[in-house]
Simulated assay, not measured.
Amino acid sequence: MGGLGKTALAANVYKKAREKFQCQAWISVSQTYSREDVLKNISKELFKDNVSVLSKTAAMDITCLEETMKSFLEQQKYLIILDDVWTPETFDDLSRVLTNNDKGSRIIMTTREGHVAALASPGHILTLAALPEDKAWDLFCKKAFPRNTDHECPVELKPLSEQIVNKCKGLPLVIVLVGSLLCVCEKTVEEWRRINDQLSWELNNNSSLFPEDYLLKRKQLVRLWIAEGFIEGRGESTLEEVAEGYLKELIDRKHAATC
């Protein structure tokens, strides 16, 4: 299921291990998989420091591109992350290029599908589970009350906080998002109850506001944040300017996780 932390874990490994390899690439695959697009994205990552080679690969047809990448990778100790793979056919397509060259190269895949994970080498499948109640509570408190001593939840907010955490179903991504939202909200029972009721409605009536891989425009996202009351004014800055700053910070964090 989504939100268990598969991509976050892979990003952490990638960040720490990438210097041990001669070349690296992080590729998001997703359900809207296009073999040509994925190969071109891998090419851009592998040859980003070689402008002449990169310009040549951009003009190649898919067969020539495959041969060029295969020849290059056969001589390299490479690390390739394939994030969000949905079908075995996707990996089969890419395995023509990502060959085992006996140089210690590694491919890491994240997937929600067991039959895709089964393609990994024996003993190298890591299954993530939802957080147990105590870990979920600890993570929520760290995000919702970062400035409190030991991230302690105020007594008057604990019953509602427990209800909110239970609705997150132990999913780290959801807990972090909800906890971070509550961090900037007023620490009152009324505000907590409003968020709890709103969360219940969203879960029951709007489980997928935006489909996966939906192209969300920046201005639309900013306006949604403002409409939901997530943005507070700062000095002379408009709400739009503050929201733009939040968006830039999120992008920078994502970039830092995969660089």
Rank of each mutant, 00 (worst) to 15 (best):
T111M: 04
L4Y: 01
E45D: 13
N206V: 01
L199K: 04
D197T: 11
K56A: 11
S207V: 04
P146L: 03
K143P: 04
C64H: 14
L119Y: 06
L131G: 00
A11R: 07
L203V: 01
V176I: 14
L173G: 05
M109W: 03
N206R: 14
F140P: 01
F230N: 10
E228G: 05
T149S: 13
Q198V: 04
P154A: 10
G2W: 00
S200R: 06
N50I: 03
L221D: 01
T149W: 09
E228F: 14
C141M: 02
G2Q: 07
E191Q: 15
E89P: 01
L65W: 03
L73G: 08
Q31E: 12
N166T: 03
D197L: 07
P132L: 01
T188E: 03
I164E: 08
K219G: 04
D83W: 08
T99R: 15
V29T: 05
Q75V: 00
R18K: 12
P211W: 03
V116Q: 09
V178S: 02
Y14E: 09
I108N: 10
C141F: 07
I195E: 07
R223A: 14
S161V: 02
P146K: 09
R112T: 06
I27G: 11
D61V: 10
G235F: 10
P159G: 06
A130Y: 06
Q163S: 12
Q163I: 02
R112S: 07
Q198D: 15
D134T: 12
E190M: 07
G235C: 02
I80S: 07
R223N: 14
T87N: 13
T111E: 04
S95Y: 08
A11F: 00
S28L: 06
A25H: 07
L128F: 09
T258Q: 15
T7H: 10
L177H: 11
Y214K: 05
K20E: 15
G229C: 07
P88Y: 05
K142E: 15
T258C: 14
G123H: 04
L54D: 04
G104S: 12
T63H: 13
K44E: 13
E36W: 00
E191S: 14
D37I: 00
K135N: 10
S180C: 06
A227K: 15
F230Q: 10
K135Y: 02
T238H: 05
E66L: 00
I27V: 15
H255S: 15
E190K: 11
V97W: 03
F145C: 06
Q76V: 00
K103E: 04
C141A: 15
E152S: 15
N204P: 00
C153D: 11
E162K: 14
G3D: 02
L39T: 08
K219I: 12
A144E: 09
V29M: 04
I27R: 09
V178A: 06
E228V: 11
E133V: 12
P172D: 00
L215E: 13
E240S: 12
I175P: 00
I108E: 08
V97T: 10
Y14I: 02
Q220S: 13
T57A: 13
D84G: 02
Y214E: 14
K143E: 14
I125R: 10
E66G: 12
I195H: 06
S43T: 09
N196W: 12
V116Y: 09
G235P: 11
D49K: 14
C168L: 08
